[in-house]
Design a protein around this nucleic acid. Sequence first.
DNA 1: AAGTCTACCTAG
DNA 2: TTAGCTAGGTAGACTT
Length: 830
Amino acid sequence: MVWRGDVGIITTRIDSDGDENLIELWGRSRENESVLLRIHGMQPWFEVCPPGRWNGDFSSLEGRLHQLENHEEVTHVTGPVEKWTDLGYKPVWKAYVSKPFVVPGLRKELSGRWYILSGDIPFANRFFLDGDFAIHVSVTAKETYSENGIDIVADITLDDVEQCQGFPVPWKILSFDLETSIAESTILCAAVVIEDRGTGIRTKHTFSGDEAGIMADLTNLVLDSNPDIITGYNIDNFDLTRLNDRMAHLSKRGDWQGKAELFGWGRVNRDEKEYRRRRDGLIPKRGATRAWNISGRCVMDCWWQARQVLRPERETLSFVSKLLFPDDDERHKMDIDASKMDEEWANRPDEVLEYCLRDAELPLDIMAEIQAVRRCEAIASVSGVSLDTVANGNTSQRIDALVIKAADRSNIGVPLTGSADAKEGQITGGYVHDVEAGLHPWVAILDFKSMYPSIMIGNNICYTTRVDQGSTDQPLEDEELFVSPTGAKFRHPSQRQGLIPLLLEDLMAQRDANKAALAKAKDPVSKSFYDQMQYAVKILMNSFYGVFASGFYRFTHRDLGSSITAWARHNIKKIIQRLEDEGHGVVYSDTDSIFVSVPLVEGENQVEKMIEFGHETAQRFSEDSAILEFEKGLSAFFSHGAKKRYIGQVVWPNQELMIRGYETQRTDSFAYLTTGMKRLFEHILAGEDEETIAYSLEMVRAAKAGEIGVRDLILSKSCKGRWDKRKAKWIFTEDYANPDSMAQVRVAKQILAKGLPFTPGMKVSYVVENATEKPMRVRAWYEEEADSYQYDVQFYAERLATALGRVTEAFGWNAKELLSGNRQTSLFSF
DNA sequence: AAGTCTACCTAG
DNA sequence: TTAGCTAGGTAGACTT
């Protein structure tokens, strides 16, 4: 029976064990079926061309070509086709090979005789590249069957797949949590909550009893419920790692069946062959990266998603929950002491199970609230990759998906990653204008629309358009070139349209289309959809510059990044100069923005004057590919004189307090300072100078008097470190020159001493007990011990005075004076 | 007390 | 901090 369906692709792998090389794609259909597509008929290949400049002498290649054709791993060779490379046009042969995994060896073997192209592209990516597909596809299958709990398994070819409009995939998400013994590191109990986004139903499960039984039941639930996405809080570093360790502990070496029973979460046959796969197999694996790999499923750690979206001051599950659901006490009441888990489990197992279940469900609430999956889906849709590649991949992979496709279509050779010359040191970045200290009334903020992408488009900046002395491909004699302030030259689009500028133009058009659709959308579902899409396009466009300015990306050259920023500096400095020549004060500028004083008018209509001035000025200085926009209007702007630190009272297009850089924005500050400083800023922008000083003095006084609740004094900082497998201990010396002089490392060690989990890169929280000791004495923060903290009153008072004093100095009070509570009369004060 | 160095986090 | 980039401010430990 013919099956037709729209499918969202979770992840891919290759199956090259048989005669054929299959690409396997796991997904979920619009109709809520689990799907496995097995793509037949594709063959792995790479390309070769003569190294160096091509001299047209085909006869010199005959021997090499013959050797290539007769290589035992090479099935056949086609070509040559003329392709563009960074040394000019060259003849390119395509070598088809028996198996994808022979390519790395061949690459090495041939490297002296040939220049290799397209030789490091994972074979499974060919599905997206050759088919021009993204995460959502439409499939027609003549027949299908069920296998391994998957509803629809279809053997098809690329021709049976078509592009598909985005649709909300009814993902099935499994969230889990383990409670573990501190003494033994065994698993005491587990909980799972499964969300079916098709039906909207959640089911809850708890597991206790002997450890092997818990793991086996958990595995059975994974297989029976067959989820697409596995989540939980910090599962990458904790829960999955622990399951893996316990599997190793509880099963004998080589007992693949025993291991599969305990942790065989993969969506594949339960046999030894699948067990033996190094990745994408029966048993979840973590390679060199942080990301876990489970065949057929996508691991999406709620902690990682939440930190990226929310940037929380602290990163515990309970903190993030309170941040998102402040009114919901049930969700975050704390009644189990995790540092005494063994006792808790012995004394009141029911409560521990309930606690465990709650911590399994919260990640689902958090993921839904921050729309983590939809966000990934939108980026996957725009860049043309699977869900897993967005959730667990890197920026280069997203850019690759777009650029390689475009290169293949235009006969541009695809160089290997790392083939470019290394960058010599850093390139120069954006220009930051000195900020004039003090309060400035009426400031218009103008900024360039998508500055770096526009510069790339406007000057046709691309790997494929850069003029290189060493290339056989030189511009026409009368060709108009774009010459960057660094001297780098780029071809004219009439002669060669760059791939990147073309892609960026397309993305800009997509963004405009999505924005237009968003404006027209009536129901919340489509509104959210178009908003996600336009945002995904924006994210993707902005990541182009970074990738092309990096030292290792395949399509880069050091002149690209430095030309982009050089043009940016040139453009913005020119406009600042012209504004100043006209008598307009430029208060500040950073990279793509200009803060300009609005001429004052008599009477009441200063806001209207600012709007008119903002729009008029922006338009006047706009050029074709450097469009300046009036972004915000401020009634007041203040900075104490440091770059990247300022505040503003926005009055157009809406009313808001805008703060950049200051302690209020920093997650390594403490609540008493951030909330107080925000209040201070409101006084400053309202022109309430006396209140500004009085408020600052009161804050410092209260701190000195020890009147602040310790919860408002918790500091938080990320801590690195790594687990040394051989020594079986945590080491910090790799990441820190002097680890024990760093407060966060000392805190991490306290956490570890308590037997609590520590995740490298995660923030740790602490209170300063005594800063007169060097290094200062700090105590890790545990909510359960909240009542027992002593803090260093003088330390907090000084830190407050320092931060507030920088600001109040503009009003005549410095840090020292805030601390003492009175102003020293200087010799010159009268 | 001033300067150097490492580290963190932010703006864009 | 999962091969995007640079500019910049600040804290704290330590040295001179």
